[in-house]
Amino acid sequence: MSLLEVRNLRVSFATPRGSVQAVESFGVSIDAGETIALVGESGSGKSVSALALARLLPTPPARIETGEVLFEGRDLLLLGERELQRVRGKELGFVFQDPTSSLHPLMTIGEQLEEALLVHERLPRTSARQRAEWALAEVGIAEPKARLTAFPHQLSGGMRQRVMIAMALLTRPKLLIADEPTTALDVTVQASLFALLRKVQREHGTALLLITHDLALVSTFARRTLVMYAGAVVESGLTSELVARPAHPYTRALLRSVPSLSTSLDHALPVIPGTPPDPAHPALGCAFAPRCEFALTACHQRRPALVALSTSASGAAGVRVYNRRVACTESERALAAEVSS
């Protein structure tokens, strides 16, 4: 049984101009200790999906229309507020993009770390302090004892994010959800935070759902990757296969259009024309069709479903079948041809 199984999650937001579909269909299953990346641009619904599965979205304006979120077999969407609090506090950990707004500005780091332990673990104060100190040491903060009495503004951005990770890991959660944890940080700090995440994951067997806009960032870090576009998962699979042989035209174009240190400078950067769609005006057909170089008439008329690619297309047989899935009319067609032949 997987640790987390999300099926058919649909989220909409009530706006003054009517309801907007933020997430159209989202599904993922995460095994214990696994790292999964959720990749997409702003507005793709990646953060909303992650917040929705932990029921962290304010409702209203958000509304979870359909879906199941099975965490160790229990549906989080059906839990009562108290039980949900317990799961969120103990089993799930969160790290957000902006550590400044996630930390209380008037409480010391130590007080904030201890609070979680006092509430969720009912530890006595002295051992809570001890645990907080260990937690800081664990995320690579020098002189953890001295840092416990520091206020958030006295720390650098990278340091604050380390504190957030320490806080998220305090109760030894089974799943850590990190939403763009390093986007606001410098690349060198980003690299050391990724090293840190990998270390704590290895030591505690924590599963990690990593939300990012940068495919390159997770290309070696996450075992599996889901690519989202306009509120739906358009492709998923083992990261190594997905970056080596992207099946969806969006993934393909995205990989090519990212400036890298190794591409030739002789040609202009290949671009994806146009802009991401406005969720207030959803397209009838495939959301990517207006920007897709391969788009057919059918693409504009019908929304392709997320279907499994055949094993021949998804890589070597014998590997545990994490189906390569892709939502593209073109692939459906190829698949149909393959089945019929």
Binding site: G158, M159, V187, Q190, R198, A216, S219, L261
Partner: peptide
């Protein structure tokens, strides 16, 4: 700096600097 730029297929977590700036 160059080693920390995310690139497809490069393991970022391999060679971090010891300290933050």
């Amino acid at each position: 700096l160059l080693a920390a730029v995310p690139e497809i297929g490069r393991d970022l977590a391999l060679a971090p600097l010891a300290l933050d700036p």
